[in-house]
Simulated scan of single mutants.
Amino acid sequence: MNKLKNIKLFNDLNKVSLKYSSLPNLVEENDINDNNKLQQLLLSYKNNINDIKSRSNLISKQARDMAKDSNARQIFDTIINLNNFAMDRYNNILNSNENMESSSVQALLNTTVEELILINNSIKYKEFLKDKFSYFYIYEKIAINAFINFLVLKDMNIDKDKIESLSQAILSQIQCLSLISM
């Protein structure tokens, strides 16, 4: 654990988590109901973590299988394109003027996107080359958590464009991580 605390990415991720840890007072009935539903869904999906990891592993395997006949330059270009596409999707979510979600739903969405942006930038600047094992451990944890959060947000019926962008971004980020780990 001490090794992770020395990694800037780890500390930045902690800051994002703390940023949304205290929500404003939930006074509207809708906010309270959404928060309760979020908690139930999160618990339900976390209890099915093995299924979610299997889905993520399948996406990773498919990405590696598609790249097995590619040369190093083609794989590198694909990694850059996937990472850029994911960032475009994150920006699409963050720049959306539609904020119809309750504060707890918005906090989960923003936390998820901001954490994914941090790993996206870490990949972009090749920070993982410093310590592949530690960085990939962090990347995997964030990607799985983002996948869980996506499933929860999808069940919360948030804006269709946001959920589609989040889905595409997470898929691209998992594929990108898979190709980097080859």
Rank of each mutant, 00 (worst) to 15 (best):
N2L: 10
N2P: 04
N2M: 12
K3A: 07
L4E: 08
L4A: 08
L4C: 03
L9V: 04
N11K: 06
N11P: 02
N11C: 03
D12M: 08
L13H: 14
S17W: 05
K19F: 07
Y20R: 04
S21Q: 14
L23N: 15
N25V: 13
L26M: 15
E28R: 09
E29D: 13
E29I: 10
N30T: 11
D31W: 06
I32T: 05
I32E: 07
I32W: 06
N33Q: 13
N36M: 00
K37T: 15
K37G: 07
L38M: 14
L38P: 06
L38R: 11
L38T: 07
L43I: 05
L43D: 06
K46N: 09
K46I: 04
K46A: 02
N47E: 15
N47Q: 15
D51K: 04
R55F: 12
R55A: 07
L58W: 11
L58Q: 08
S60Y: 07
K61Y: 11
R64V: 10
D65T: 06
M66P: 01
D69V: 03
S70G: 00
N71I: 02
N71C: 03
R73L: 10
R73Q: 11
Q74K: 15
I75W: 01
I75A: 00
F76L: 14
D77H: 09
T78P: 08
T78K: 03
I79N: 01
I79W: 00
I79M: 01
N81S: 15
N83E: 06
A86K: 02
D88P: 02
D88E: 07
Y90H: 07
N92S: 14
I93K: 03
I93A: 00
N95H: 01
S96Y: 09
S96C: 10
N97V: 03
S102D: 04
S104M: 06
V105C: 03
Q106N: 11
Q106T: 00
Q106C: 00
A107V: 11
L108C: 02
L108D: 04
L109D: 04
L109C: 03
T112V: 00
E114G: 01
E115I: 02
L116C: 13
L116P: 09
I117D: 05
I119W: 11
I119Q: 05
I119Y: 11
N120W: 07
N121R: 14
K126Y: 09
E127H: 14
E127C: 12
F128W: 14
F128C: 08
L129Y: 15
D131G: 06
K132H: 05
K132C: 00
F133M: 10
S134G: 05
Y135C: 01
Y135N: 10
Y135K: 06
F136L: 15
Y137V: 08
I138Q: 08
K141F: 06
I142M: 00
A143N: 07
A146Q: 08
A146S: 14
A146W: 05
F147Y: 14
L151A: 09
L151F: 12
L151Y: 09
L153W: 03
K154A: 03
D155Y: 10
D155G: 02
N157T: 09
N157I: 12
N157H: 04
D159R: 06
E164Y: 02
E164W: 03
S165G: 02
L166K: 07
S167K: 09
Q168K: 12
A169F: 08
S172Q: 08
S172M: 10
Q173A: 03
Q173R: 09
Q173V: 05
I174L: 01
I174K: 10
I174G: 00
C176M: 15
C176K: 14
L177Q: 15
S178C: 08
L179N: 00
